[in-house]
């Protein structure tokens, strides 16, 4: 068990996601930046689906109550273990009573904390990913207790890795969405010419972009949407659905982000710039 002395801005438990209920309107959820999350699970020799803690913008202060091994990844943020700075993508041993404390965010937006064998919160509808109304809350609050199995001895095959950071990446690789062909030249031109800034409306459900393109009066019947689907509203606003995004929608789906692009975008915050790059089919 560990306890959050302070929870941070938005801290939640996530695994690979919840599969099998899309036809009941339940989104996949799971790691927003799965590229970073997967790496630290791998380093700890965890199952790919082991549950991690996902921190947004500002992280928590954590007190461990049993020994384990931890690893951090994702956004660059200064973190201390008992007041000593620790590295990301490196395995650290923690003992009962140790305090992990998150400091200033330097780059990126979401950080991940993995413990050996993953967090053991209740699995609901086959997943530990927090998402209301499947789980009672969508994030952890102050004083929250999070269970894990104490591990005293673990000899990792590799204790640290060097990661090619994509936190500075601004290009989102996309393919054509189902309604792409309905865009006209002027819309296409703006879409692939230059940057868009992330609006303040950004969270685990969707990222809206502050800059608009020309609007439309297209109508369509409601149909499935995916994490990474870029919707175009009649007023020309671009909404990029993310892991907790709705499973169906009625706005034209003009682009689809690659898996990597979803992770790139998950590390962006209000005001950051992105640009779309169309992959060849």
């Amino acid at each position: 068990m560990l306890r959050l002395l302070k929870s941070g801005f938005f801290t939640s438990i996530q695994d690979e996601g919840r599969f099998g209920y899309l036809d009941k309107g339940v989104p996949v959820s799971g790691f927003m930046d799965s590229f970073s999350a997967t790496k630290i699970n791998l380093l700890l020799e965890n199952e790919p689906n082991a549950a991690l803690m996902e921190m947004t913008m500002t992280g928590p202060t954590i007190e461990f109550e049993a020994p384990t091994y931890i690893c951090l990844g994702g956004a660059e943020i200064s973190v201390t273990l008992n007041n000593n700075p620790i590295q990301h993508y490196k395995i650290h041993k923690v003992e009962a009573g140790d305090i992990l404390s998150y400091g200033r965010l330097k780059k990126g937006f979401r950080n991940y904390l993995a413990v050996k064998d993953g967090f053991k919160t209740d699995s609901i509808l086959m997943s530990r990913s927090q998402y209301f109304p499947v789980t009672i809350k969508n994030c952890l609050s102050d004083r929250a207790e999070v269970p894990y199995d104490g591990v005293s001895i673990f000899e990792p095959k590799i204790s640290e890795i060097k990661v090619d950071s994509f936190l500075d990446e601004t290009i989102l690789e996309v393919s054509k969405g189902p309604e792409f062909e309905q865009l006209h030249d002027k819309q296409l031109e703006r879409l692939f010419a230059g940057e868009f800034n992330v609006a303040k409306e950004n969270n685990r459900m969707a990222y809206q972009l502050a800059d608009t393109i020309e609007g439309h009066q297209l109508t369509m019947l409601t149909s499935a949407t995916l994490p990474g689907t870029v919707q175009l509203t009649p007023s020309g606003r671009l909404i990029i659905l993310m892991k907790d995004g709705q499973t169906t929608g009625g706005y034209p789906r003009i682009l689809q982000l690659s898996d990597k692009a979803i992770s790139v975008l998950a590390q962006k915050k209000f005001g950051d710039a992105i640009a779309f790059k169309l992959l060849r089919a």
Binding site: Y21, D23, K24, G25, V26, P27, P133, V134, T222, A224, Q246, T247, T248, G249
Partner: peptide, 9 residues
């Protein structure tokens, strides 16, 4: 005709 928008909608 569909279930989506919110879980169970």
């Amino acid at each position: 005709y569909g279930i989506g928008f919110l879980p169970g909608f």
